[in-house]
Amino acid sequence: PESADLRALARHLYESYLKYFPLTKAKARAILSGKTSDNAPFVIHDMKSLVEGEQMINCRYMPLHEHRRSDLGIMHEVELRFFHSYQSRSAEAISEVTEFAKSIPGFINLDLNDQVTLLKYGVIEVMIIMISPLMNKDGTLISYGQIFMTREFLKSLRKPFCEMMEPKFEFSIKFNMLELDDCDMALFLAVIILSGDRPGLLDVKPIEDLQETVLHSLELQLKINHPDSLQLFAKVLQKMTDLRQLVTDHVQLIQMMKETEADWSLHPLLQEIMRDLY
């Protein structure tokens, strides 16, 4: 394809990224570095600030059960409540990723079963890329950037909950060093979604053709946007290998928690995605 077409594709994907993803990298980095006119995020670093943070966001994402309102109950139930809210936000994010995928030219013309397969295998990888800009070595933004939760607090939760976010921090810190911007990210997310090697695909050729065009667009975008960053295109693509391992470990952990946590129920959409995944 002509480079003008590749630039138009980059602009289109960037626009739909802005349309469907509420917290961009630019905004997240501004919040994290304090360079924004908005209020600084509320910091959750212990049980007391967690309760205050929950009240601040009106408990929408972290519902308290009436019979567990004692302080002792809060201590015991914090992990379950936190991951209930994590699941609700994940389900919303999957819906956003789906809309973004549908906006990739040619995606909705693929076999519907293949669209399902691409999303099933792609969404968690995409979500890990999307949370990277929200993270730094000390913690992560949550709740659309209103709250900053410290890494130490997440590590202080009981097992296995404390093991959930740490691998994402390790990945994100390295991924953020590539310094991709939101337009680079939009193209990379489309490349991930259009992976022709997902298990069970019925018609691989049209998917690979679409991915090839987006890959060309990403390569050109990185050359223009990062002229001094050598081999950036190759470095970005290498992240896809790390992502697959990260998702495999994540799904194993969730499935283990489903067995061991009696009070834990998995959101139906996450169940659909994780069933028979790897």
């Binding site: 919303e92 819906s95 956003e96 519907l112 399902v116 099933k120 139906p268 959409l269 659909e272």
Partner: peptide, 20 residues
């Protein structure tokens, strides 16, 4: 298809993200 009911619904919904 039954196994991925919600994903199918999300894909076939023509407007904005559906309420989950």
């Amino acid at each position: 298809k039954e196994k991925h009911k919600i994903l199918h619904r999300l894909l076939q919904n023509s407007s904005s993200p559906v309420d989950l």
